[in-house]
């Protein structure tokens, strides 16, 4: 039997790589996102790749009052409930602009942090009720340490990652796998304006790794993609503060 998969933030480039692989396995997909035009383009893409079905739920997930409705609608479309759920939405805030504008900083924090935590909390209830399945949430390597150039983003992702970490422990006892995906630098529309060095991974390759982990029945916990970031971030986490404040990256 192929999977029922729900993707929140289905227009993200990283999600596309994972969704195409599910589609090729003839999965039934439910796509949740804000823009009907973009969702439609993604839906067609997945049907071309072989998805058994691709349904669309239009919702602004940063709006907490709309979230439960979106989750319920997506659940209803995934008949029999979701076997796999991917939370992939987020934005890359302009750190300097956030420093100058606290309202903007809070908005960005809410989008990447609070709203994602709220969504995961709702999804945990659904999955727990079902008693099986897999939840993968895209946080970031930026969650591991506050860097001068993007610590607002890092802080929001850290809140999300810590939440997902706890959720992983809680749900693992119920037979539900939770994966905290921590991508390194990825070339995608979100990072298109940055200068891209050799450390940048292709969003399709990251999507493939996410799909692989979600399909692997013995995998749960933190997933660094590409894998080398596990090592890089181990080092970064252990750099003493006296040194850390001198390093510019």
């Amino acid at each position: 039997m192929s999977d029922n998969v729900i993707v929140f933030g289905a227009t993200s480039a990283m999600a596309l790589g994972a969704m195409r692989r599910y589609a090729a396995e003839k999965a039934r997909l439910v796509l949740v996102g804000r823009s009907p035009e973009k969702l439609d383009a993604v839906r067609n893409d997945l049907l071309a790749f072989g998805a058994a079905s691709a349904d669309v739920v239009v919702a602004d997930l940063s709006d907490l009052s709309a979230q439960q409705g979106a989750v319920d609608a997506a659940w209803a479309k995934a008949e029999g409930g979701a076997d796999a759920v991917l939370v992939a939405y987020g934005s890359l805030p302009d750190q300097a602009a956030c420093q100058a504008d606290t309202d903007l900083a809070v908005r960005e924090f809410n989008n990447n942090g609070t709203s994602a935590v709220a969504l995961c909390n709702r999804l945990a209830q659904k999955l727990e009720e079902r008693g099986s399945g897999c939840l993968a949430v895209i946080s970031s390597v930026a969650a591991d340490r506050g860097r001068e150039s993007n610590y607002l983003y890092g802080a929001a992702k850290a809140a999300l990652a810590t939440f997902v970490d706890g959720l992983f422990v809680r749900l693992s006892k119920k037979g539900i796998r939770v994966i905290d995906v921590k991508p390194g630098l990825v070339s995608s529309p979100m990072t298109a304006h940055l200068k891209q060095g050799p450390l940048f991974a292709k969003s399709d390759a990251v999507g493939a790794a996410i799909h692989r982990a979600m399909k692997n029945p013995s995998f749960q916990g933190t997933l660094y993609v590409p894998r080398v970031w596990a090592l890089v971030m181990f080092v970064v986490r252990h750099v003493p503060e006296v040194l850390f404040k001198r390093v510019r990256f």
Partner: peptide
């Protein structure tokens, strides 16, 4: 390069729209 999606594919005839 960002216009990277497939629109449809017919596995019978091989017609690809992208």
């Amino acid at each position: 390069r960002g216009l990277c999606r497939f629109v449809s594919f017919d596995p019978e005839t091989g017609e690809l729209h992208c």
